[in-house]
Design a binder for these strands. Structure first.
Length: 425
DNA sequence: TCTGGGGTCCTAGGACCC
DNA sequence: TCTGGGGTCCTAGGACCC
């Protein structure tokens, strides 16, 4: 049975989102910065043409921004999340099933379109998504997911394709594989590139000529699956429903270096609350919590320290109160005075559905009460904005807060997400 | 002075059990 | 004294993704 997949990818997604609401920026170089305005994580084509690389530290391009040759935005994930949802909904109109692979990519199942004019169909998808959401996309179509990735990449690169490439003919497929360098293959990172190069594999095509036994030996089952996919044998299915997450993590670098325990505790408490909220969103609870702290390992002048602590809870929970409590216990055991801390994070694991919790006979927590408290809290925050109500440990100081001086407004979502000052106390 | 954050899957090796 | 083989679970670490 033959399969057919499309990989749809939003072009320069974050940059395109910023432009939707500021069309005057069309045709102008624009970048989006990471948290803390640290480095470049998205670029418009014009910014790429200026030679700005992914990951460039902001301070290296600040001059360009100041003289007006480049526009820079802090990242605005609320806006991007909402725009992503709109694009995925639009794409869903064109296929019986869709796998949302990341914030800006999805696979469509086009198997039932075999034999139709796929090129025309893809152009219709592209035009419609543009009309409905103002986000430009590229489409690659092929018999396997890995080949659809190859097609998508060439669709974007090629002047002739202009954003749509259908690869079904065996001759076209091998030409495409020859035109794809090994490091540009999905699933081949830095280490595998080095290894494959050493064995004379320069392109995706060379890779498909390697015997299965060799691939299995050097790249394990993941590599074997990949090489088969590139040869046209479908090994990766469409995963329509995202499974609940097995680990949930919230971590950030601070806006400035922190030395005081109380400040770091405040940040950690806020990250724990964020994790708790993510848990409740997917209706699960976590049994294990870890907290880590670290100094800035880039800095040669500072004393370096990093550590982490993990605690297994008596009963899995998704309550802010409990998770903040245990996060503080973890932090207390690893905090050492005398360092300039850069970053902390909270990681939750052993995640279970909230209706499958193993209770403890000696449990002293009133779980019903916690659950209804969290329900009210989620209601309040969704109506009045986040942090309208919080646990005292989360504090009001917030000297740890991110730097994001170039944030655009959340055009598409609740009024309460707009940066208005509300009465927290 | 400035350098992101959040995930997944797989494997190897040790502990432990029968 | 020697010394088997199969299974499971856990953990740390590596590799990759966007």
């Amino acid at each position: 049975m033959t399969t057919l997949f499309a990989l749809c990818d939003c072009n320069n997604f974050y940059a395109s989102c910023e432009r939707v609401f500021q069309p005057s920026l069309n045709g102008k170089p624009l970048v989006v910065l990471s948290n803390n305005d640290g480095c470049v994580i998205a670029r418009s084509n014009e910014a790429k043409a200026l030679g700005i690389q992914m990951g460039t530290p902001f301070f290296q391009i600040r001059d360009l921004v100041e003289i007006g040759d480049l526009h820079a935005f802090s990242s605005n994930y609320v806006l991007y999340g909402d725009m992503s949802h709109r694009v995925m909904q639009a794409l869903g109109e064109f296929a019986p099933s869709i796998e949302v692979y990341s914030i800006d990519e999805s696979f469509l199942d086009l198997t039932n379109l075999l034999g139709r004019d796929l090129n025309a169909y893809c152009w219709e998808i592209k035009r419609s998504v543009m009309q409905w959401t103002k986000i430009p996309i590229s489409l690659g179509v092929a018999p396997t997911k890995a080949l659809a990735k190859v097609a998508n990449r060439l669709a974007k690169k090629s002047q002739k394709a202009k954003g749509v490439l259908v690869l079904t003919d065996p001759y076209h497929i091998s030409e495409a594989l020859k035109a794809t360098k090994i490091e540009d293959v999905w699933g081949v990172g830095r280490q595998y590139t080095k290894l494959l190069r050493k064995h004379g594999v320069e392109t995706a095509y060379d890779f498909t000529l390697r015997p299965d036994s060799w691939v299995k030996k050097h790249m394990a089952v993941v590599g074997l699956r990949l090489v088969k996919e590139l040869r046209g044998e479908s090994c990766l299915e469409l995963d329509e429903i995202a499974p609940p997450k097995k680990g949930i993590c919230t971590s950030r670098s601070f806006g400035e270096r922190l030395t005081e325990y109380s400040q770091i505790e405040e940040a950690t408490a806020n990250y724990a609350a964020k994790c708790a909220k993510k848990l409740r969103k997917q209706r699960s609870c976590a049994r294990v919590i870890s907290v880590f702290i670290q100094t800035n390992h880039f800095s040669e002048n500072d004393l370096q320290y990093s550590n982490s602590k993990t605690i297994t809870l008596p009963v899995a929970t998704n309550s802010d109160l409990e998770l903040i409590h245990y996060a503080s216990l973890c932090l207390k055991s690893i905090y050492r005075p005398g360092y300039r801390y850069k970053k902390t994070g909270v990681i939750l694991t052993e995640i279970v559905p909230d209706h499958q919790i193993q209770y403890d006979l000696l449990d002293t927590v009133d779980r019903q009460k916690h659950a209804s408290l969290m329900k009210s809290l989620d209601k309040l925050t969704s109506r009045y904005g986040r942090d309208i109500v919080k646990v005292a440990t989360q504090g009001y100081d917030q000297s740890w807060q991110l730097k994001c001086e170039r944030r655009s407004p959340c055009y598409t979502t609740r009024l309460s997400d707009l940066p208005i000052v509300c009465n927290e106390r």
